[in-house]
Simulated assay, not measured.
Amino acid sequence: MMVLRPPGVYPPQGDTALLCEVARRTDALLGARVLDVGTGTGTVALAAARCGAARVTAVDVSARAVLAARANALVRGLRLRVLRGDLFRPVAGEVFDVILANPPYVAGGRGELVPRHGTARAWDGGPDGRLLLDRIFAQAPAHLAPGGTLLVVHSALSGVEASLRALRRSGLRAAVVARRSEAFGPVMLSRAEALEARGVIGAGQRSEELVVIRAV
């Protein structure tokens, strides 16, 4: 899917495509209230709308991403409610049948907080890649309707078992429903030597496994 993407907005890549594929294979989208957390260009939210979701809400902290998602919906004649804000804050008190998320998860950041400005905000997940993941896993259950589904994509380098444990602690049943090997993109290539030195990846490793986790 070709999309409008201003500078600084995360471009749809293999993780976006994998999440969309898994979402399309489920029967949960038809007639559903859907939330896309960290929407970027709106690609995942638009896929949900095309699959027959009754109402799709997209959230992103970036003003440019919000504008991009609105523009991409407009040119396709699809209805999205696009809100600006941090994770679930713009939808406080609301519940959804399906929550989709492709959050920043690249490991190797130096700070204990994700960047508040700049392009790194679209992909930097902190030292272990889990700063946004763990917040989503802790907050999502309060926004899931009974029987609702959460689908999250991230790199296995960020810790698959850690994600499953976090979701189960939040009272959800969780399992990996898709895996795919993906060559490193520019960001991971720029961090490869540092990740090798920390033992996060093996010597010469230039690919990672992407996973989609489903929790209900």
Rank of each mutant, 00 (worst) to 15 (best):
A63M: 01
H117E: 15
R180Y: 01
V91R: 14
A140W: 06
A48Q: 04
R121I: 02
R121P: 03
R173G: 15
L210P: 09
E94D: 15
F96P: 12
P11E: 15
T41W: 02
V61Y: 04
L18H: 13
L29P: 10
L189C: 13
V3D: 12
P12N: 05
W123P: 04
A23F: 12
V211C: 09
R198P: 01
R191I: 07
S170V: 12
V176A: 11
R55N: 07
R135T: 13
V114I: 10
A138I: 05
L80F: 01
A107V: 10
A194R: 10
A138P: 08
V9D: 07
A215F: 14
V153Q: 09
Q13T: 05
P141I: 07
D134K: 09
P127L: 02
R64M: 10
L46C: 09
T119W: 13
G42A: 04
L74V: 02
P115N: 08
R110Q: 12
L4D: 11
A32T: 02
V59L: 06
A92W: 15
L83M: 15
A68H: 05
E193Y: 01
A63Y: 02
P12I: 08
P103Y: 03
A63N: 00
L80K: 03
G52Q: 08
R81A: 15
A107D: 00
L113G: 01
G109C: 00
R24I: 07
A142D: 14
T149G: 02
R70P: 00
F96D: 12
A120L: 11
L189Y: 02
E21Y: 02
T26M: 12
L157M: 11
D86T: 02
R130N: 01
P186R: 14
G8P: 14
G8T: 12
V187E: 07
F137P: 03
R191N: 02
L131S: 08
R206W: 01
N102G: 09
V187A: 05
A32N: 01
A92C: 08
M1K: 12
C51H: 15
R168N: 03
